[in-house]
Write a protein that binds this DNA or RNA. Structure first.
Lengths: 229, 229
DNA sequence: TGATTTTTTTGTTTATGTAACAATATTGTA
DNA sequence: TACAATATTGTTACATAAACAAAAAAATCA
C-alpha cells in the first residue's frame, strides 16, 4: 500500500473541502473556519476533512458539511479536484472540492469567533489554496446559474420575485432587468404562485412564490423550463 | 501520515484514468488496455496510473497518457473524481478521470493485441468502474461539444466541412442538417478557408479548411465565435 | 462530347430565445 | 388626498436555432 509502479513511496492524503455560499446582509458570503493548528494556524479556511475509508466522496462531503455546519440534505456538487504537490506545505494532500448554496438561517453557527461568514468580495487571508477554490466555485456557480439556476437554495420557503432577483444579482455580480428576469423566472418548472403577499414594512406588498418540493437526488431536475402548452 | 482525525488508519491511493476517444472506421472508439494482472485480469481498462508525489493531477494525466500512448500536448481535461470505496476490490483507490480527443493516427499503437481501440457502442467487459467513467466522459463531451466544440482534435490538419460534420455526428450520435452545420461552422473563430481541395476519388472535390494554431494552454479559447463585423 | 452520377455548396423562412426599453398599479404614509 | 416607494406588466428589435430544397461542380461512362 502506498507504493506505486515507479517504486516511489507515497502516501497521498485525500480530503474534501466544501465551499458554502450564502446571502447575508445583502452580500454573497462564504463560511470560513479559523485554523488553530499548523499549518496556516490563524488563517481562515473552508470547512474540510479527511475522507474515510468506508465512504465515497459525496458521502464524505455531506458528512463533513453536517459535522461542521449542521446542514443536511442540500444541493451539494463535486467541483474539481485540486492536487498541486505544494498546496499543502507539509504532506501531500489532494482535495476534492464541493460546493453548496444554503440559507444562512439553516446553519446553527456556534458562538465562536473562529467560525463565521465572510464576504466573498473581501476575504481574509486564507489557508492553502482555498482562495483559488472559492473563486473557482464562484465561477462554476455563475456558469451554472445561467443555464440551470440553483439559487432557490438561498431563498426562504416563500419569497418574492424581487428577492429571487436580488439573489441572482448578488451571485452574478451584476444587475438584471426586472422585466426580463420575471419573464424567465415565471416559466421556471416548479415555481408556484401563492395567494399570499409579503407583509414587509414596504409600500406595495409583493406576491409570494415557492418551489414545489422536489426530491433532492435528481440534482439536475431543478429549474428545467416548463413544457410549452 | 495516513491517519485521519478519526484515528481510522487509511491509505488511499490516487490514480488518474484517461478516456481517450477517437474516430476510426467511421465510429467513435476508445483506447483500452487489457489487464494482465489481478484484479480484473483479462478485462479491459482505460489507461491509468498512479499519481506521483512530485506532480499535480494534470501533469500525472499527461505523463500517463504519454507513457501509454505516446501522445503529447493535447487537449486534456479533468472530468470527475470517482471515489466509491468498492470501485477497487482490494484497496481503496480514488481516481481522477481525464479525457482527451485525439487523432488515431497520432498514436503509435504497439503491435500488441492487449492494446487497442474499441467501439464505444460495443464495449468489451471492463475493469473497475471504467464503463461508468467512459459513459460519463461521453456525456460531458456531448454537453461541451454543443457550446464550445473540440472535435477539431479529431480531424487531420486539413479537412473538409463534411469530415468535420461527420465527426460531430459520431460524437453526438445523431445526424445534423448540412446547411445549418456549415453556417455555424464557418463562423467559428480560427477556422481558415484554404485554396486547396480534397483529391479523394469522389465526384466533386471539397474545399479544405484548417484551424489556426492556437496555444494549447488556453483551453477554452477554441471555438469561440468570431466577433461580428 | 454529352449525359449521368455523386458530392459539394448555398439561402430563405419560421420559430424561439434574448436584450433593451418605460409606464402603470398598488399600497402605506404624510 | 397627495405623495412616496415598490410591484407589476408589454413591445420591439435583435440574435440564434430549426426546418426546408435546389443548383453547381467535377468525375465517370456511354
Amino acid at each position: 500500500m502506498g507504493k506505486n509502479m515507479f517504486n516511489e513511496i507515497k502516501t497521498h492524503e485525500i480530503t474534501v473541502d466544501i465551499v458554502i455560499l450564502t446571502i447575508k446582509n445583502n452580500s454573497l458570503q462564504v463560511l470560513l473556519i479559523k485554523r488553530n493548528n499548523e499549518p496556516f494556524k490563524g488563517k481562515w479556511a473552508i470547512p474540510g476533512g479527511y475522507v474515510r475509508m468506508s465512504e465515497n466522496l459525496d458521502e464524505a462531503a455531506m458528512r463533513v458539511l453536517k459535522e461542521k455546519t449542521n446542514v443536511d440534505n442540500i444541493y451539494l456538487e463535486q467541483l474539481y479536484t485540486f492536487g498541486d504537490p505544494l498546496r499543502h506545505p507539509i504532506s501531500r494532500v489532494i482535495t476534492c472540492a464541493y460546493f453548496a448554496l444554503i440559507r444562512a438561517e439553516d446553519i446553527e453557527i456556534i458562538d465562536n469567533p473562529d467560525v463565521g461568514w465572510h464576504k466573498v468580495s473581501n476575504l481574509p487571508p486564507l489557508a492553502f489554496d482555498h482562495k483559488e477554490i472559492i473563486m473557482y466555485s464562484l465561477k462554476r456557480t455563475r456558469e451554472r446559474l445561467e443555464m440551470c439556476p440553483v439559487a432557490y437554495q438561498l431563498l426562504n420557503e416563500k419569497f418574492t420575485l424581487t428577492e429571487m432577483q436580488k439573489a441572482y444579482e448578488l451571485i452574478m455580480g451584476k444587475s438584471l432587468d426586472k422585466r426580463n428576469f420575471r419573464k424567465k423566472a415565471i416559466q421556471t418548472e416548479g415555481l408556484v404562485e401563492l395567494d399570499e403577499f409579503s407583509k414587509t414594512s414596504s409600500k406595495r406588498p409583493a406576491r409570494l412564490y415557492k418551489f414545489e418540493t422536489i426530491k433532492l437526488n435528481s440534482k439536475r431536475a431543478h429549474f428545467i423550463k416548463k413544457e410549452k402548452k
